[in-house]
Amino acid sequence: MEAKLSQGLYPLHRCKTIHLVRHAQGVHNVEGEKNFDAYLSEDFFDAHLTPFGWQQVDNLHKHVKTSGISNRIELVVVSPLLRTLQTAIGTFGGEYNGVDAPPLMIAGAGNSGRHTIGSLNCPPFIAVESCREYLIWYGYLPFGVHPCDRRSNITKYCELFPAIDFSLIETEKKCFVEA
């Protein structure tokens, strides 16, 4: 017997759709493709997006809006790394009028050169440590092997990204490897 699209273990109205989005191009990606050893450079600690990465974000934002996907998104779960926050906010962020809702990202956050991105008319955002691409646990602190995979202090992020919920991040400390 052939299953119909509407048949399944759970009714479709009780199911959720999950969209997974990888971060746009970061400064570490450009140098790392030229020379893999560049990933070991502290210059790329918690790497930010390149101008081309922001162009990718703008294209995805336009697609999400014109396709109607943005109307169906209930929650954005994001890794607490600068490039992933910038990608998620640029893609799924809303309007900013300075009054009705706090900004998701303040102007210029993380060398972006961008205007403020608001939280008005967009889903809530929550940062989750375990969403990071590479995560190695030493004791209770997560560390990335490469500087680009380590994050800044959550206090800093709270200033740059005021409307993001960082309450699930268990440690305030900046994740870095001591020499």
Rank of each mutant, 00 (worst) to 15 (best):
V177K: 11
G26L: 06
S6Q: 11
L5E: 15
F44T: 04
L168Q: 12
L9W: 13
A47G: 11
T50M: 08
D165F: 06
C131V: 09
L75D: 11
F176A: 06
R72N: 15
I164Q: 04
C15N: 07
V76K: 04
K65H: 11
Q86D: 06
L160W: 08
R83Q: 01
Y157C: 04
F125W: 11
P11T: 05
P124N: 08
A163S: 15
L85N: 04
T171I: 07
E33P: 00
G26H: 04
D37S: 09
E33M: 10
I69H: 05
Y39G: 00
N121F: 13
S167Y: 12
A88F: 07
A47L: 06
E31T: 13
F161Q: 03
I73C: 02
G53W: 01
G108H: 09
D58Q: 11
K173D: 12
F176H: 11
C122G: 06
C122A: 01
C131R: 01
E2V: 15
M105L: 09
G8K: 13
G26F: 02
F166Q: 04
L9M: 14
G93P: 06
A38P: 03
G94K: 06
K156L: 12
I164M: 07
E129I: 02
S130I: 01
G8V: 04
S6R: 10
I136M: 13
E42C: 01
A47D: 02
L49D: 01
F45V: 02
P147I: 05
G113Y: 08
D37E: 14
N153F: 02
E95V: 14
E129A: 09
V27R: 10
Q56V: 03
G110S: 02
F166M: 05
Y96L: 05
C131Q: 15
T155E: 14
M105Q: 13
A127M: 11
Q7Y: 13
I126G: 02
P11Y: 06
L141W: 02
F143R: 14
G53A: 04
E129L: 14
K34M: 03
E172A: 03
G93V: 04
P124R: 07
P11M: 02
E159P: 00
I164F: 08
D149S: 09
A88E: 07
Q55N: 12
Y157N: 06
H146F: 15
M1V: 14
I69L: 15
V77D: 01
K173T: 12
N111D: 10
A88S: 12
T87C: 02
R14V: 00
N59M: 10
R14K: 14
